[in-house]
Computed example of a mutant assay.
Amino acid sequence: MSERFTKGMARNIYYGGSLFFILLFLGLSFDTVIALSERDNRETLTPAVAEGKAVWEENNCVGCHSIMGEGAYFAPELANVFERRGMGDEAAFKGYLHAWMNAQPTGAPGRRQMPQFNLTDEEIDALAEFLIWTSRIDDNDWPPNVEG
């Protein structure tokens, strides 16, 4: 091998490396698109879930909470709130969410306070449907602890 690093060698490394990483990027992108359809729970998406997502966005819940790691970290992660508070029972979770949302703010000293959003029963039910649907997405066991 030559002891000199020529312009031709540099060009070949540049083009070869670029081609390699472009192909790697395309392969990983393709794999992600295939995997998402198996994990995202889209077949169970209902109008009530979409309405709950709209309630989530209109009230800026992501401004304090995170869901599947996305959002603010001021308040608890809500990706697994259905398992935490509803224990797999949809009716129990909806009852819990109604009681929780209507009791805000709790006024407990030394605790962060969630504002009262004055949501209707239908909006709370829709929000519950959205959180239940979200909890059933395969998110690689996120969050890493039970309490989010």
Rank of each mutant, 00 (worst) to 15 (best):
C64H: 07
E51S: 14
T134H: 07
L127W: 00
A91S: 13
R111M: 14
T134C: 02
L19G: 10
G107H: 10
V62N: 11
M114D: 02
M9C: 01
G63M: 09
K53D: 01
A91K: 12
G71N: 08
C61G: 03
I22N: 06
E83A: 12
P47M: 01
A126E: 04
A126H: 13
K53E: 13
P76I: 01
I137G: 04
L127N: 00
D141L: 10
D139F: 10
F5M: 09
S18K: 12
V55S: 06
R84S: 05
D141V: 05
F130L: 05
G88F: 06
N102K: 15
G71D: 06
A128E: 00
N60I: 07
D31M: 12
K94Q: 15
T134D: 00
T120Q: 05
G27V: 02
E58Y: 06
Q116H: 13
G95E: 10
M1C: 07
G86Y: 06
H98S: 04
A128M: 02
K7Y: 12
T46E: 02
F82N: 04
Y14L: 15
R112P: 07
L26H: 01
E51F: 05
P143F: 04
L97Q: 01
S2D: 14
K53P: 01
L97V: 00
H98F: 03
T32F: 12
G71I: 07
A79N: 11
E122K: 15
A50C: 04
N12T: 08
M101L: 12
L119M: 14
R4V: 12
S29Q: 14
L45Q: 07
A99I: 00
I137W: 05
D125E: 15
G63V: 07
P105N: 07
E129W: 02
R42G: 03
N41K: 09
L23F: 14
F5R: 13
T134V: 08
I67S: 04
G63D: 11
A92E: 11
E43A: 13
P76M: 03
Q113Y: 04
C61M: 08
E57Y: 03
T120E: 09
P105C: 02
Q116F: 08
E38Q: 14
G52S: 03
M68D: 08
G27K: 04
A75S: 15
G95S: 11
P143G: 04
R136I: 01
D139N: 15
G148C: 04
T32H: 10
N59Y: 11
R11M: 11
L23Q: 09
E57A: 11
A75M: 14
I137P: 05
